[in-house]
């Protein structure tokens, strides 16, 4: 992180991304050899997690990206050494990030920057500012949702390699609006 801070200070064009799971999971979880925790790069220590949270809060890290990596049970439930790297992360990325960052100074404006505006600027040169005339891509978040638990039944992905099953959250994604169409309400995909 110090290298990235140094480079940014020097005006070098460099951006850094972090995954939600590296903000919340640590290598202590490997004790049971459950390959759901096998990811690339590997989970690191709780000190490393603190460093990443700090860097996301202070803007050194520009982007949160999920590295959503679905794997079938056959490649993800056996021996650690034989299992594929990766976990599924799209569905609860935002609740996970908010849980990880709850004790940090991480505003909704920062969420918008790191999870929407910065990736949109880098990937497709869009501002994503919620301006008049923009494509109506809007996500409505309930920041004080009643505590809820993520379970396999809530999963839309075809795979089940999530380390977050059984985890409780206090943030939920109430609505997703894509190009003016509601695509999701409270976990239900809208297929109209």
């Amino acid at each position: 992180m110090d290298v990235i801070r140094w480079a940014k200070k020097r005006g070098i064009q460099v951006t850094a991304e972090v995954t939600p799971h590296h903000l919340i999971l640590t290598d202590d979880l490997l004790v049971g050899y459950d390959p759901v925790y096998k990811v690339n790069p590997p989970l690191r220590t709780s000190e490393d997690v603190q460093v990443l949270r700090e860097a996301l809060a202070d803007g050194t890290i520009d982007i949160v990206a999920t590295d959503h990596a679905p794997h079938s049970a056959e490649t993800k439930s056996g021996l650690w050494s034989d299992s594929a790297n990766g976990l599924i992360g799209l569905e609860v990325a935002l609740p996970v990030v908010m849980k990880a960052m709850q004790d940090r100074d991480y505003s909704w404006r920062s969420v918008a920057k790191t999870m929407s505006q910065n990736p949109a600027r880098i990937g497709s040169h869009q501002a994503n500012n919620l301006d008049i005339g923009d494509s109506a891509n809007i996500t409505l978040i309930d920041p004080k949702a009643a505590t809820w638990t993520y379970t396999p039944e809530l999963t839309q992905s075809k795979s089940r390699n999530s380390p977050y099953y059984g985890m409780d959250f206090n943030t939920s994604v109430a609505y997703t609006i894509f190009r003016g169409k509601i695509t999701q309400i409270a976990g239900e995909v809208q297929n109209a």
Binding site: H68, A112, A120, N129, L130, I177
Partner: peptide, 16 residues
């Protein structure tokens, strides 16, 4: 949307 926060739609640069 009272009590809800409106964000620009989320963008993921890294989906498999």
């Amino acid at each position: 949307a009272s009590g809800l926060v409106a964000l620009p739609g989320l963008v993921d640069l890294h989906t498999h």
